[in-house]
């Protein structure tokens, strides 16, 4: 009990500091994922159009994904130095696979007859993609973003090892200074953040699914 109240009082006393860290954390995650969307969606589209390229792209993304996060961040540090930028690149790489593969699957799931109706009406390849195929794969894409975001919230707690901030900072500081309350408050907020992201994106995903019917 005393342990829990310790954590609680730490949180109350340091709320402004924790808020700052949380915001930092969110910014890293959001930037990483936005970059992954910018790169991953086109790669997913290319994969859906070409089975051969799909195999290459998905294998590479898979390899990145199975790399242990500490090792990946360590390697990035060697190439990019330390700091925010390196963390974001790490999160970006981690988010790629779920986004590419879900875009790919989402596009392949679009009913052939619907695509054909679009083509038959005289849509260009790009019109078909933007007006029909991508909107219809939105639920899948959102599922990908959801997975990516939850992973990224977790991976981002490693940021302090390579000179970043975020909730990991309190965890690492806490470990170094043997302050349990500090460690746990960082960890708890990170976990809550992950749950919140999961629930919100889960709901968005359901809504788009329903709308598409």
């Amino acid at each position: 009990m005393e342990f829990l109240s310790n954590i609680f009082s730490y949180m109350v006393n340091n709320w402004d500091h924790l808020l700052m860290l949380t915001i930092d954390h969110i910014i890293m995650v959001v930037v990483g994922i936005v970059l992954a969307l910018i790169v991953g969606i086109p790669l997913g589209v290319i994969s859906a159009k070409n089975e051969f390229l799909a195999r290459i792209i998905l294998s590479v993304a898979n390899i990145i994904q199975v790399f242990p996060s500490i090792a990946l961040l360590g390697m990035l540090m060697i190439f990019l130095g330390i700091g925010f930028k390196t963390v974001v690149v790490g999160l970006f790489l981690y988010s790629l696979l779920p986004i590419i593969s879900n875009t790919y699957v989402g596009l392949r799931e679009v009913d052939d007859s619907i695509s054909e109706a679009g083509r038959g009406s005289g849509m260009t390849v790009l019109q078909l993609l933007f007006k029909v195929q991508l909107p219809l794969s939105l639920p899948f894409l959102l599922a990908g973003v959801r997975i990516a975001a939850v992973i990224a919230v977790g991976v981002a707690t490693l940021a302090p090892f390579i000179g970043g901030d975020g909730l990991g900072k309190d965890i690492v500081d806490g470990i170094n200074s043997r302050q349990e309350a500090k460690i746990y408050s960082g960890a708890i907020i990170a976990a809550l953040l992950a749950i919140l992201v999961d629930l919100t994106l889960g709901r968005a995903q359901k809504q788009t699914e329903q709308r598409i019917g």
């Binding site: 007859s113 009406s121 005289g122 598409i212």
Partner: peptide, 20 residues
């Protein structure tokens, strides 16, 4: 072909309405 298709009506078996 794009021009051509816009000038020709096309109805398919599986209806193919855009569900979204």
């Amino acid at each position: 072909p794009i021009e051509l298709r816009r000038k020709i009506g096309y109805v398919i078996q599986h209806v193919g309405l855009f569900p979204h």
